[in-house]
Design a protein around this nucleic acid. Sequence first.
DNA 1: CGGAGTTTTGAGGCTATTCAAAGGTCGTGG
DNA 2: CCACGACCTTTGAATAGCCTCAAAACTCCG
Lengths: 252, 252
Amino acid sequence: MDDVFDTERDSHDRPSNRFGEFLRLSAEERAVVAELLGPPQHYPRHHVLRREGTEPLNLHLLLGGWVAASLSLPTGKQQIVKVHLPGDLLGAPSLSLKSSAETLTTLTPVAAQPLSRSRLIAAFARHPRLAITLFLSAQKERVSLMDRLALVGQADAHVRIAALLVDLFDRLSAIGQARDGAFAMPLTQRDLGDLVGITPVHVNRTLRAMDKANLIRRSDQTITLLDIDRLRGLTGLPRRDFVFEPDWLPFR
Amino acid sequence: MDDVFDTERDSHDRPSNRFGEFLRLSAEERAVVAELLGPPQHYPRHHVLRREGTEPLNLHLLLGGWVAASLSLPTGKQQIVKVHLPGDLLGAPSLSLKSSAETLTTLTPVAAQPLSRSRLIAAFARHPRLAITLFLSAQKERVSLMDRLALVGQADAHVRIAALLVDLFDRLSAIGQARDGAFAMPLTQRDLGDLVGITPVHVNRTLRAMDKANLIRRSDQTITLLDIDRLRGLTGLPRRDFVFEPDWLPFR
DNA sequence: CGGAGTTTTGAGGCTATTCAAAGGTCGTGG
DNA sequence: CCACGACCTTTGAATAGCCTCAAAACTCCG
């Protein structure tokens, strides 16, 4: 966990959190964002940041660690709808609701900054570019959910697991937490099952088969993707090419 | 198809499209929205409004009819990620992308107004309340996708179908297109399968069983929910209670 | 009346599930 | 330092739910 909490970047670089995902924010705008954020908080593993059903008073900007957003069904089963990685904004979907839809649970030790929903929305008026990025971020998340839905709805266990691993790898690569196809994997096989909609037992058999097929290798909390191209090919969905400061946006 | 295209409402009433979903817009704001919209276009059944992979230059505001948003996998299978009903804004997720993720196909004859992505976003600056509603709308859609994902990931065919029917019923009720648990159903059993991730054959057996169990009744293009409470109970997900002009928003 | 698409029904097979239990790993406390 | 418990991974066997393939009946439209 050396540099897990290091998500700050040089401002000339591509920004490292959801606020600069689609636009290169000005110094003033970045100051406004910094002003919105509360002091970083630290949480242990398996801490519940938010329980579904409670009122969503504030969001969290994830600085370091992994967080699961999940829905639970009364059958006892739960679906993890998103694994949040550093830089992600947590809890936004429930802004539209009186009581939260998702439970946010830390999967690792976590550092995050709280941010008040009312102050965030208020900032939209004086800083429309903030509104635009966050609007586009929300749309990006919809695309991601649509992709997940298509996989869970139509693909078999191998494909679902492959897509999940590739997605995690891509997102971790973007924040410098994957090297040579390898990354730390804090998710248990039960977690993986809750993510892709299969039982832990079957996750195990699937991972095992993929290991034997030389697609992946597993060793103490680390997963290595041995043949990323083949894994990517399995998933069947195209790479999603997101815009950045597109020319159709106003006041760039 | 008498009043299918009638989605205009008295301005004192709860607005009928996505622009007034979370805020009661002022006369000026409603004028701005009207100004953004192009002239209504009409399309026949099975018309492709947008093909995945193409650049998303404009959105559509659906006035009447049903539209499917789908992703296709190279296996030939397709997942319908959303059935759009009158009042919905179509194509927004792909604003974040260089090329569209979803294919938009009309399921019935459709009337829709095009709207330019750049002009829409430009309006955010002078009319922050527009930005706020659309931001919240996007979050609402995320919740809806999360619910769908949880159902497809964890529930069996009966529960998935029940949840789908209840969702359609609730949304159609809100626009006055369902009475006494009954509504017109233009989706084929293949469509239903693409929505919930099961084969048409199994959809048929499931519907048939639900009919025999007196949960639903089917007759010429119409579905009647005979026991909505029991159907709702099957799904397991709580009713989603969305905010409207919540007191934590600025400048109400 | 023909043809395309949809609904219905049957039979057989496969994927993933359930249930059960053994072996590992890790953190904790004696 | 070892023993213990909690949780995770692995494996097996039997089962269930859903899929595939196939074909017949029905509806709708030209």
